[in-house]
Nucleic acid binder design. Structure first.
Lengths: 222, 222, 222, 222
DNA sequence: AATGAATGAGGGTTCATTCAT
DNA sequence: TATGAATGAACCCTCATTCAT
């Protein structure tokens, strides 16, 4: 019994360590992503991040091997969420324009869900070497899947004939921009923002725009 | 007579000097804006810019008092163009949604016209002090005028009832994003891009979207 | 009785502990000396040493109070061996040149016997304070005893008249250099190396060099 | 005439700049080599070197791209002198043992001539990458040429049969050691030191050691 | 007993800016 | 005028050392 208790304590302690570490890592990601977005990668010093976390600068190196790797990981987190969004959109049992809307909705929602998932969209140029190539290629593939959604929608008649390239630049550009102005705690939740914007943007591409009335989201429209 | 001749020569020479100076200044703005957009304000060194211009680093200080001021001037150039676009849109003798489309068209076109006019949209965070406040307030006013265009469109029935704030975030976000991917010399001119995107985006807001068919711009849609 | 049993157990266990500790300490010295020699004192991190030993970095502090002290102890080990060599040479019942040769032979052999005994000869500059002074003075005294051996040899006629200072610099310099290139496991044992080199070097100083023919050690001389 | 004068002044000014730069570069090399030798590469900070030169640390970067490159250049300087020494020895119109002595004499003399030429012999381990490989290979080739000199001496009968490898390790080790203790301004000039040591060391290898009597250099031998 | 975590000090390097020429 | 030279500040990163567990 005594042994078991000790053992349980022991068992309890180690997960705590790991859990604490995971928490700190997540906090690091959030702060770093937030800072990178606001001040840029090169404009953010590790001192800034460390100070925001309340630790010393060298402490960061227990969680991330270096600043470049930190940026790389944030990009990965961001892309993971983005790819999950488009995957779920693709798999939705509906017609082309709706699949597009769902993918866009989920993508924008992911951008509002956490700093780590969104706030480094603009800092692709700061990466170098193989990491840069990998991230760029994943980002391109992500956009390609959106273009495929548009093309499919054109084929099934639910999307108005248009150039998929510009269509996707439009909606993803507008979506990415969300990370610039959206801050949690405002009058609208991330879901609200994602719903409103995805409907508005997809309405511009729909073969039958009347499917997407915008009234329900009106505010201060008088 | 001799003096006059000399003076005339002088007159001929000095305007040349001034013109040359103006040319170099413009080249400086273009290179700097381009570099800031690609690598960020803090990621671009004055050495980079000087090298791209083929001059020494101290020579830059003949044209710009310091790096911050350079960024400030680029923002001013960018905002001048943006404000001119919205002004012309506001003054167009047509209904609300068309005024909105025209303003957006001109704005996007300005972004494609030159690096100096567009490529620093993302570097607001790098400015400090009074300059930052001024630029921010001008940018906010610019967006406000777009919101007013949307509200007016809703009132005159040409724009579907919607939240102007998100409507403007959408279309300007998509527009700003153009500066990230548009490079001159592609298959589409800046005018093309501006026309296609402005129609697509405004179609999503129009009370009667059928006014904005996208067919004419279809490419590879089969 | 119970106590004694316990004590006996203790006696059995504790010597083991102590012996194990001694072993680990020796391994630490070897690895540290080897690393210091290859990469220099400042070029070797405690992480390197800890990793080579398969322990954590703080564990090193159980064996050595700090890095400087580690260097100091290595110097002491090295000097102990060096002083023993010269002492045995001095006590040898023969003439001056032979006493010199024996001291040199034993000194060089000690350098080939273990990393700890030799490989920090070059890192005197890394020590500070009283430790540095002590080591330096011991090293100077060691050289002084060699000079005395030379002088005595000159007096008894077995060493050719020469400046003892340069004579000793020569033979000890050549000897110290052994620690740079000798690695155990080669075609020649440490004893071989010590014998060959000591004969060669002393031959240059001997009043009658014919006493030290080098033939026996010829290799690939054709 | 006036123009020519001006032009001459102009011509005079630019060489001055270049000459000054060359002087500062040489001073940098001397101080750096001296510091590297005394405190090791990793034990010497650029602050140290800059302070010794009376300039700020970033100023060093106008003369050397980085610390590693500085070490590399010092090695090159050192090897240039070493190779010149052996080349002159090889070309001397005399027998084998004398060619060896001359090469050794010139080599040792080069070590006493300037810090830059000698004081980094010990810091090969601090270099990395292609530079390390290049320096190592040059050093090996240098030693190989000395071994060839020994072998040739054995063949022509002027050097006693011996293992050239150990013979060269001895004399070059003793020579290299000079850089540890020789300081200009002592009672013996660099030429003295080189002459005394080269005779002493080669005497140990000569088939007829009586050719190299050491009396002339006796001091305090009583 | 042994280690993960943390940090103050310091090192190499870059850069915006100034100044003498 | 235009530039080579120089620098203070700041940045990324490493490391010897300590401490809580």
């Amino acid at each position: 019994m005594a042994r078991m208790a000790i053992k349980n304590q022991g068992n309890a302690v180690f997960p705590d360590r790991a859990a604490q570490r995971e928490l700190k890592l997540e906090a690091l990601y959030e702060h770093a992503a937030s800072a990178f977005n606001e001040k840029g990668f090169h404009g953010t010093s590790l001192d800034d991040i460390a100070a925001a976390l309340g630790v010393s600068k060298p402490a960061l190196y227990r969680y991330v091997p270096n600043k470049q790797a930190l940026l790389y990981r944030l990009h990965c987190i961001s892309l993971d969420a983005a790819e999950a969004a488009v995957t779920e959109g693709e798999a939705s049992p509906t017609d082309g324009v709706e699949r597009l809307r769902i993918a866009l909705y989920l993508y924008i929602r992911s951008l509002t869900a956490s700093s780590s998932a969104c706030l480094v969209l603009m800092e692709e140029g700061a990466m170098t070497g193989a990491a840069a190539a990998e991230i760029l290629s994943r980002r391109r593939a992500f956009e390609g899947r959106f273009r495929t959604l548009v093309s499919a929608g054109i084929r099934d008649g639910s999307v108005a004939p248009c150039d998929p390239k510009f269509a996707v630049f439009s909606i993803l550009g507008a979506g990415n921009w969300v990370s610039r102005w959206y801050r949690p705690g405002g009058t609208r939740s991330g879901e609200d923002v994602a719903r409103i914007m995805s409907r508005q943007l997809v309405r511009g591409l729909a073969a039958d725009p009347s499917r997407y009335h915008l009234d329900g989201d009106v505010r201060h429209a008088s």
